[in-house]
């Protein structure tokens, strides 16, 4: 490979290598589909338990997020073993969602202080923000629109101080998170 390099060759080589590399980022639709379904099941389950049963702890349905966290950790570890390159987009992507965990925990466990009916809307507002930034990073417009849908449905959810907010939450997550997730999966499979 050590043949003389002209200045023009150098520029072509630099451009080619940079272009070849910058399109390389890890698949992320798995997380969208996993959390999309977990939150929809959680929201619908919460609604069902509140409306149709006398179960005193309807929020216990959210324990389904525990196996989801485990699945996330297992998938993430397996994926990191397979990838041979880490782009700045990969790092930012992980950072956005890891930094999302702390405010979510504050909202959930601070629920008694801020009022339990503000939990769903507040989480959706935050999720909308993270989804929009993710969409911009991945240069994938459906995800950006999905984030806007999450914001709009978050406002609606904040307005309803009863179990209706869980239905709104499920609709918001289905349209703003799961649908873009499936579109992203489709894009990744055809890439």
């Amino acid at each position: 490979m050590e043949k003389p390099l002209s200045n023009q060759d150098s520029l072509i080589l630099i451009t080619q290598m940079i272009n070849q590399t910058k399109q390389n980022y890890q698949k992320s639709s798995f997380y969208f589909l996993l959390w999309g379904w977990v939150v929809i099941i959680g929201d619908l389950g919460h609604y069902y338990l509140m409306e149709f049963t006398n179960y005193p702890y309807p929020y216990a349905i959210w324990l389904i997020s525990v196996p989801a966290w485990i699945a996330c950790a297992v998938y993430g570890t397996r994926q990191s073993k397979q990838v041979t390159v880490k782009t700045h987009i990969d790092s930012l992507y992980s950072f956005i969602w890891i930094s999302f965990i702390f405010p979510i925990l504050v909202i959930i466990f601070g629920g008694t202080v801020i009022g339990p009916y503000y939990i769903t809307g507040s989480i959706m507002l935050l999720a909308g923000y993270a989804v929009i930034i993710t969409g911009k990073l991945l240069k994938f417009k459906p995800t950006i629109y999905g984030g806007i849908v999450l914001w709009i449905t978050a406002l609606l959810a904040l307005y309803f101080h009863d179990s209706t907010q869980y239905l709104i939450g499920a609709i918001g997550v289905a349209l703003g998170y799961l649908v873009p997730g499936y579109m992203l999966k489709n894009k990744e499979e055809n890439a």
Binding site: I18, Q20, V85
Partner: peptide, 27 residues
């Protein structure tokens, strides 16, 4: 100003880190 070293640097300037296998494949 050498083809392989320049290719390596061009790859590494675009990413946070890359494994030997990846650089070998790309170059």
């Amino acid at each position: 100003h050498s083809q392989l070293r320049l290719a390596v640097m061009s790859i590494l300037i675009s990413v946070e880190s890359a494994e030997f296998v990846y650089i070998k494949e790309q170059t």
